[in-house]
Amino acid sequence: MMMMTAPACAQETIPVVLDSVKTDTVVKSAPRKLGLIRRIIRGFDKVDERYIEPQHYVYAAMLQGTRNYDYYTLRSAGDNRQSISFSPDSEVRLGPYAGWRWVFLGYTLSLENLSVNSHKSGFDLSVYSSQIGLDLFYHRTARDFKLRDVNLGHQQDYSALNNVSFDGFTTDITGFNFYYIFNHGKFSYPAAFSQSTIQKISCGSWLAGFGYTQNSFDLDYELLQSVIDEKMGAKRVELDSALQFRNIKYVDFSLSGGYAYNWVFARNWLLGGSLQIAASHKRSTGEMSDKKSRSFSIQNLNLDGIGRFALVYNNMKWYAGCSVVMHTYNFSLSQFSTNNTFGSANLYVGINFGLKKKYREKK
């Protein structure tokens, strides 16, 4: 009887053995794939701990006050060159932020205009690691501009137009900047701009990246002309035809390069800064577009800039500091050019919490 049952048991066990082989294969391959992904992700934050103290915590909370700055200049390129600058009164915004590892998100509310019907809005998302950085931004301005630095030619005094309120100008800007930090093992960009690590020894790094931006301007030039007529009286001046437009839209593709440096001047203190210059190709898509702007040409290339500066105190648990971030974009057609500069100055205080496992074990 034993001889008869043995083959049956053997036959019955064959599928079980095969299934166990398949199961082992799946179980072993999944951790390998997961381990590779983890190694790649962790590689973004791999640092030389002689120069950089890694973040000990998983989460962060912060209260930040922000003063925004927007300045736009329109210029004609005719024989009688004219230029008009627009800028709203700078506003102070206050709000909470929360961070998890690389990502830091927040919302600020204007302390000067609490109306929910305001047409001004904005969104900023920054992702920083040791190797890479990514900035996403969207800014829509309200109809609260004032005229600044008006020059309509004819050797006249236009001071009567300075600081005059003008609600016929609105702007939208949406885009992103991506950059790579070459000396990421010893230089920490997050130490200066996301307070997630501590730079222990002064160090710098070259940066390189690319970006994409969409810009849009809406101008009620008839209203602008009426404001000029009212303020100038008998000295009435006609707007150049190049400034008589309803809408301008252009897209911007850029390649950037620059340098950043962190100066550790005292224990837990850091003064950091970076400057990137971008070679940008711009293509107009609105009312002011022309054939030259739609095809690639050296004439469509402009230089833009991004500057960042920060002063930080960080003892790993608590941190506080201030930072300034500025963007400038230039765009020109044969009969028209514009420059827009926007940025923010920030003052903040925050706390890190949720100690990572390996640091809990050291205690």
Results as ranks from 00 to 15, higher is better:
R67H: 03
G272Y: 05
G133L: 11
R81K: 07
T213P: 07
Q276K: 08
D19N: 15
R50H: 15
G211H: 07
G350M: 04
D252I: 06
W100A: 13
S115Q: 12
N215H: 07
A320Q: 07
D167P: 04
V325D: 13
P190K: 06
I41Q: 10
F336Q: 02
S85D: 07
T108R: 01
G106T: 00
F309Y: 08
L161E: 02
Q195H: 06
N352L: 02
T328C: 10
Q155I: 07
Q214F: 13
A60F: 07
I306W: 06
Y180M: 05
A10M: 13
Y259A: 08
V264A: 05
F331D: 06
Q155W: 12
M1R: 14
Y359S: 05
F182W: 10
S256R: 05
K22N: 12
N215E: 06
A242F: 03
K120Q: 15
K317G: 09
K22E: 02
S115M: 02
V227S: 06
S205W: 02
G175M: 11
V349I: 12
R148Q: 14
C322E: 05
A234E: 13
F253Q: 05
F182L: 14
Q156H: 01
S85N: 08
V349M: 02
D167T: 12
G95Y: 00
R101S: 15
D252L: 05
S110V: 10
R246C: 02
H184A: 14
E361P: 07
L243A: 07
Y138A: 07
N113E: 13
Y348S: 10
G153E: 04
F166Q: 01
M1Y: 15
D167C: 04
L105Q: 06
E230Q: 15
A310F: 01
V349N: 11
T73I: 11
F296E: 09
S323R: 08
T341S: 09
L161F: 03
V150F: 00
D24H: 13
T338N: 09
Q244R: 13
G78Q: 01
S126P: 07
A310N: 03
R75W: 08
V103G: 12
H281K: 04
Y313V: 09
Q55V: 03
T170N: 12
V227L: 05
Q82K: 03
A30E: 13
W263I: 13
V150R: 01
K120F: 10
T174G: 02
A310R: 01
S76P: 00
D144Q: 09
L303E: 05
Y57Q: 08
L355V: 11
W318S: 06
S216D: 03
R246W: 12
D218H: 09
D229G: 06
K291F: 15
K249F: 01
G354D: 03
D218P: 10
K249W: 03
A278H: 02
